[in-house]
Computed example of a mutant assay.
Amino acid sequence: MPYLNSISILSCGWLGESLAVNMLEKGFNVKGATTSLDKKERLAEKGIDAFQLRFEDLNDEMKKFLNSEILILNLTIKDIELYKQFLPLLEQSPIKKLILISSTGVYKNSVKPVDENSELSESVWVSIENLMKDNLNYQTTILRFSGLFGGNRKPGNFLSGKTVKNADAPVNLIHRDDCMQIINEIIKQDVWEECFNCTADTHPSKKEFYTKASDIIAVEHPIFDEEEGSLSSFKLITNEKLKRRLNYEFIHPDLMKAL
């Protein structure tokens, strides 16, 4: 099977499965990987070329899975040794373009707005980003997502009944609809060798946002500890580079309305 116009998504969890269906609807040949047999069957029923694979499966099935033009690496795995083991197989594959889903957790806390040039933490994601992007066999774009919500992932459940410090600290979140659309725009506009912060336009306080989020689904409010923490232990992620470079308008720019 030719690999052109083909996208491989590793893996098809909460975001990846929806993304796979979205890409299929846009006319791509989509390969989707999951560790679950039930999920594999569900993906296949939706028309996706489904694989039951683990990241560490460096076998013929993984080679078939990587027979695509574009790879979307959408993993929560933080073991950099697994990425190092995976890399030679990726280098030998037809993959020419890589979208690496990372996290805005790579940044240190800051009293100033955080952009793509802000100081990085010692997060393992920084090492993973560096490993995957510094490669001449394919072009990479890194998407640093803030906290994800949408579908059955309701923010009201995130902190319900929990004690929360820094009640006035800003919230950094992005809706799944925007995650998928941003990935679509990267591919459509052929934007590679870039790094983007992906977060909604607005940043309400934790207290304002999670109180309303709890009310909407009728669960217990978080307990906001006004005495502990300080406003120096937060970060406000900016998305200006993303909007400027892709001419992107968010589907859900306002977090309070997105609830």
Rank of each mutant, 00 (worst) to 15 (best):
K31V: 09
N5L: 09
I251S: 09
T104A: 03
A50I: 03
A50Q: 12
K162S: 02
A218R: 09
R244E: 10
R244F: 02
M256L: 14
L75P: 06
E228G: 00
N59P: 03
N22P: 06
T35P: 09
I237A: 07
E227A: 15
L98A: 07
R176M: 12
L82M: 11
N137Q: 14
N29C: 06
K78V: 11
S8C: 10
R42N: 13
E122F: 06
R144H: 08
T163C: 04
L43I: 10
I174G: 10
N247V: 02
E194N: 08
H203V: 13
K63Q: 10
T35I: 15
T238Q: 15
N184Y: 11
M132V: 01
Y83N: 02
V124G: 01
I182P: 13
Q181A: 09
L90A: 09
R244C: 03
Y138R: 04
N67A: 12
L255H: 01
F250E: 05
A167T: 11
E122T: 13
P113C: 11
S123W: 13
D225C: 03
L131H: 03
L159W: 03
E220H: 04
D201V: 04
L24K: 09
C179E: 06
L4P: 02
S68Q: 15
E17N: 12
S233I: 12
K235F: 12
T199E: 05
I128W: 02
D254R: 00
N197W: 12
A50G: 07
L66E: 06
L131T: 01
R244V: 00
S205V: 14
K243S: 03
K39Y: 12
D49L: 08
S93N: 13
P170H: 06
D215T: 02
